[in-house]
Simulated assay, not measured.
Amino acid sequence: MADAGNPLCRPATEEELSRPLSVVDQAGWLGGSIAGKRVLCLAAGGGRQSSLYAAAGAEVTVVDLSGAMLELDRQVAAQRGYRMRVLQTTMEDLSGLSNAEFDIVIHPVSTCYVPSVAPVFAEIARVTRPGGLYISQHKQPISLQAGYQRSADGYPIRHAYYRDAPVPPPAVMSPSASRLREQGAVEFLHRWEDLIGGLCRSGFVIEDLIEPLHAKANAVANSFADRATYIPPYVRIKARRIGDAAAERPAIVIA
């Protein structure tokens, strides 16, 4: 994808970098300024995410499994004079990062590539400071269950909800499938109890949840926008790291 210049692997444009927060934070979850904040862009190599958060004044660390993707981040940092740290590792192993190191963790769609989100959330909880934000986007379970060819009744459910095995790839890469499933990728369905419950069990509280709108009226049948009118493809979650309640409770002074 990096070698082919996939849109996900392209740095932000000059126009986007002139207004980075309006690009990355349309919901206003980041509070208006992240200058000086320690931000982890997790599984987010490719030069885009890191450059936008660096342009907004954050101290950026970017983690990705792909060295080719991280090279794009290095190139953007060198070209624009951004200071950023890069780390090549899996999202389940952040041992190269310190406890409570980050104010904000940004995590684009990628949890579908791991069999279990539990170790991912545990590592994110470890590196996020109490009170810090974890903003993540995931593939909706039903989007991975459903087919990509519309019938008279809509898009049929093809795969079981309760499953441990990867979701089979589409038999035909229709317009909607090609935007939702990367060719050759192995993907896993994570149920809502894995996503929402898993975040809560890992030490986060959910503050907001949105389903990014990709539906369009009168979209061509079997297109990405048409399928999105029936099945929301993604969910975006704002979660806040809670600390140790006993440690945060004010001391009681007895005169």
Rank of each mutant, 00 (worst) to 15 (best):
Y162Q: 12
R227P: 00
R48H: 10
S178E: 14
A152P: 00
Y53R: 03
H214D: 03
V205C: 09
W29H: 13
R150T: 09
N218P: 00
G147S: 05
R179Q: 14
A58K: 09
P212L: 05
E123N: 12
G184L: 03
Q75M: 01
A122L: 09
I206Y: 09
A2S: 15
R83M: 06
N218V: 00
Q75F: 00
P170Y: 09
G47S: 06
S50D: 01
E92V: 14
I196V: 14
Y82A: 01
K238W: 04
A54N: 04
Y230F: 14
A44Q: 11
A177S: 05
L70A: 02
Q145P: 07
I242C: 14
V63K: 03
P156Y: 08
I210A: 07
R241C: 06
G132L: 12
A122F: 01
V120S: 05
Y82M: 01
L30T: 10
W29P: 13
D226C: 02
E16M: 10
L30V: 11
G243R: 06
G132V: 12
P169T: 03
P11M: 07
T111A: 10
I135R: 15
T61C: 07
P20A: 12
A246G: 05
A215Y: 02
R150A: 15
V120G: 01
A247L: 14
F188Y: 15
V24W: 07
H138P: 00
A221H: 01
E187H: 04
G31K: 14
A185Q: 11
T128V: 15
A77G: 06
V86R: 03
A171H: 06
S178C: 11
R83H: 12
E101L: 05
G45S: 07
L144Y: 10
Y162S: 06
Y53V: 02
P166H: 11
A12D: 10
Q79M: 01
A77R: 02
E59W: 05
A219T: 03
D3H: 15
A100M: 03
C41M: 10
Q183I: 09
V114C: 00
V60N: 03
G5P: 12
L195K: 12
L70W: 07
Q49E: 14
T61H: 07
Y155M: 04
S66E: 00
E59F: 02
H190Y: 09
R126K: 13
